[in-house]
């Protein structure tokens, strides 16, 4: 598959010696939605800013559609669209004025801007509000306008830094839908960062777990979850003799995907399977029936990306964000980035 982004051994050290990104390598395929998952200060925004030519890398090679990002920043800027974490809309301009100026900054002609702004504003359901001041827009609308603006010059790769940060659950899902549509209709390559597990899970084809400037794992959300241990089936057998249950469990252990069986309290057993727990459940049923045991209840729990994150970084994302040290680090970083 063709690669839209290729990063080899990228390191970014800010003035003052803060290592934001530490020797990371990854690639993004064309037409893929690729996500960076990690807490604040992990190096997500820095990576994006290096990729769109806003920051110079300290070390490393970066290519966008085969073009060297460091050597040809002008072309990179034309080929990439960027919606920052902070929604950068001038709220004292109207929706249309905002997008018009954006088009002018990308050297488009008036005709091109008029045609394309209608197209993208319709795509993001903002066309009816085009003459309203951005001041009157809700958070979700501002974010949509921001993403719409990033599309005015028809970029090949779209970068979204925390696209749903601070939005409520419903609005977040609407934004996800727009992002999915974008990929479906325009075959666009999308690189996004997030610290919401659900977001990475719902949107991304592949996810890189990033923590303290290093990539801890890259794979599809499905595979990442499997890597850390697979599904857990919790079975509650109806009241029968222990011997029969042991016989059933013995047979269950014979199923190749079953990794181990743990005894819980009150005859509740936890069966850990390497993959596709949903396919194992019928087998467990038939084994039980053959042995004349009834099952009261059965539950399948698949590991979440939350578990994945915990597995690879040793902490939950919340813990990570609450630690004081990282808070200070984030603040320093933010101040740096604001320049």
């Amino acid at each position: 598959m063709e690669k839209a982004i290729e990063v080899k051994n990228l390191t970014k050290i800010y003035k003052g010696g803060i290592v934001a990104v530490n020797n990371i390598s990854f690639y993004v395929n064309k037409g893929e939605i690729f996500g960076f998952l990690g807490p604040n200060g992990a190096g997500k925004s820095t990576t994006i800013k290096v990729l769109i030519g806003l920051l110079r890398p300290t070390r490393g090679e970066l290519f966008l559609n085969g073009v060297d990002i460091v050597k040809h920043p002008e072309q990179i800027k034309r080929d990439t669209g960027y919606a920052a974490q902070e929604t950068a809309i001038d709220d004292r301009l109207t929706c249309l004025e905002n997008i018009y100026l954006q088009g002018r900054f990308y050297h488009l002609s008036r005709e091109e801007i008029e045609k394309r702004s209608e197209e993208v504003l319709k795509m993001f359901d903002l066309f009816d509000r085009k003459n309203n001041l951005a001041l009157t827009f809700s958070g979700g609308m501002l974010k949509r306008l921001d993403i719409a603006e990033a599309l005015i010059h028809r970029p090949k790769v779209l970068f979204l830094d925390e696209p749903t940060l601070g939005l409520d659950v419903q609005t977040r899902q609407t934004i996800w839908e727009y992002i999915r549509n974008l990929r479906r209709r325009n075959q666009m390559t999308i690189f996004l960062t997030t610290h919401y597990m659900e977001e990475a899970d719902a949107l991304c084809d592949r996810v890189a777990v990033i923590d303290e400037g290093k990539i801890k794992a890259i794979d599809s959300p499905e595979n990442l979850k499997q890597q850390i241990g697979g599904d857990i089936i919790t079975v509650n057998f109806s009241e029968v003799s222990n011997g029969k249950i042991q016989k059933v469990l013995g047979e269950v252990r014979q199923i190749p995907q079953v990794k181990k069986v743990n005894l819980g309290r009150d005859k509740i057993y936890q069966i850990v399977v390497s993959q596709r727990g949903d396919k194992i459940i019928p087998e467990i049923f038939s084994i039980s029936q053959r042995n004349g045991i009834n099952i009261n209840s059965i539950r399948l729990k698949r590991p979440s990306l939350e578990d994945v994150y915990l597995h690879f970084t040793g902490r939950t994302i919340q813990e990570k964000e609450e630690s004081r040290e990282s808070l200070i680090k984030t603040r320093i970083m933010k101040r740096k980035l604001r320049r």
């Binding site: 769109i52 002008e74 800027k77 990439t80 960027y82 929604t87 001038d90 900054f105 050297h107 604001r338």
Partner: peptide, 15 residues
Amino acid sequence: DRRIGYLEKLLASPI
């Protein structure tokens, strides 16, 4: 502009 992120947006564009 720096505060609202507009400056960054300008810098990310090819102007």
